[in-house]
Design a binder for these strands. Sequence first.
DNA 1: AAAACAAGTTTCATATATTGGAACCTGCAA
DNA 2: TTGCAGGTTCCAATATATGAAACTTGTTTT
Lengths: 265, 265
Amino acid sequence: MSGDGTVAKALDVLDLVAGFGHPVRFSDLLDHSPYPKATLYRLLQTLVTQRMLSFDPDRSTYTLGLRLVRLAHAAWEQSALAPIARPHLDVLSAEVGETVHLAQMDHAQVLYVDKRNARDPIPMYSQAGKVGPAYCTGVGKAMLAYLPDADLPGILSQQSWHPFTPKTVTSAPAMMLELATIRARGFAFDDEEHEPGIICVAVPILSTGGAVLGALSVTSTTARTTLGKLAELAPRITQIARTIGQETTNWRFPEETALPNRKRA
Amino acid sequence: MSGDGTVAKALDVLDLVAGFGHPVRFSDLLDHSPYPKATLYRLLQTLVTQRMLSFDPDRSTYTLGLRLVRLAHAAWEQSALAPIARPHLDVLSAEVGETVHLAQMDHAQVLYVDKRNARDPIPMYSQAGKVGPAYCTGVGKAMLAYLPDADLPGILSQQSWHPFTPKTVTSAPAMMLELATIRARGFAFDDEEHEPGIICVAVPILSTGGAVLGALSVTSTTARTTLGKLAELAPRITQIARTIGQETTNWRFPEETALPNRKRA
DNA sequence: AAAACAAGTTTCATATATTGGAACCTGCAA
DNA sequence: TTGCAGGTTCCAATATATGAAACTTGTTTT
């Protein structure tokens, strides 16, 4: 991946550090990176001076830097979907009392953008940002079902089709059938396809033009409920998703109010 | 700034987009960027293919991309301080019922890493990630006071010394005196130095080795309380800060558990 | 309708930054 | 002392980025 561009390589390294999940030493990174020692070394240096990474000289380890946190803040706030959906998630969460997820497609995967937990209702940022597979999650399938036909083959070909459970759909053709069912029904289930005992209903969030913006889901366990009971929530979730979709579509940013000193002014 | 390195330029552009706070068109960016048209164009393309930015073809605008959200999630989780401090913030917030801030130094500025609000106790991520000045905030001064002497001149020289209010300290020498007072006292005040009517007590979070890890503050208004009353909270805040500092210092990452397939294994 | 204009995209010779093998430093252990 | 692993620096070959200018495309103005 990423044959061209120093930027791509630097970002690769950033991902690599992020992937470890804890401070890493140079040689740990070297073992897992395709780049030669000198190149990796310089990339790391660049990232540190740019404060995308921070280097702890005492333990000689690299960690993700604070500049990233700042950028992330902006990313979350500027995303059209997440801030608009937030109050609606609160409402839905209060109504159903179960785990609520807001997700978007990111590079053929599902990115959880926000979450309300059933038990502990504190929606810290740290719970958002996780990625999951598209082909075996409720939100993933809900979004796949409403994607333009032209985009589907490309995205399906990028799925790993790992059989997490006996119920996981593990091929593109089988998924096409499932997606047709979802379109006919208007919402998707996750019937223990990712984790045993975990089930959910999910609906897509569409713009008024019909484009997929994201998906909304309510998750529970087979111990507490059934797919049938979850299905009863579908109309309400769909309603909320439609509201979010409309608000997001109508959302227009103020034309010339942000930065005052434009050169052309 | 950033004379060398394509990576630096790309990150500049990323910051630029983030700074607008809303989707931006190419020419808006061009007006605010030092780079010539073609260069900026290619940098943007690179960032879009890397999913650090996303491009909306309908409105031809650029926004921050989802890859950023993912990286940021990791950055927050992997930061030694924030996750450890979180439960302590909850405790402190419950005890005092006022706004609580957790901050770290980032490039001579204060980065708010976490927050508990007095009225509306939902600590959404969107409230973290903001940056503020070091010389006129409680957390900023608390950290400055305990920084190594060698680092201080460099950092103080980067402050803007803007007189936000009549009480703002606006020079490095004056700040040196203030910092000596803070060290003697063990905690810092913000006596309406940044915003009128806003006051706070702040204490540094130190590692057991004495290094500044961050700062913790309780903020209120002159309408609700006085500096004297806030000072009464200082011992408790200090106690919590010490606990956080110790836990963070003792925090050791598991040596070889994260990525299973190390080459050398 | 033609002409002028603005916004965005591509080209291409040139200058520059990146590359990575190898040499070179550490400190530390045998 | 020797050996060795983790880091760091060199430097010539090479790939990459650069940016002025030319070119589209779509939108105003005359």
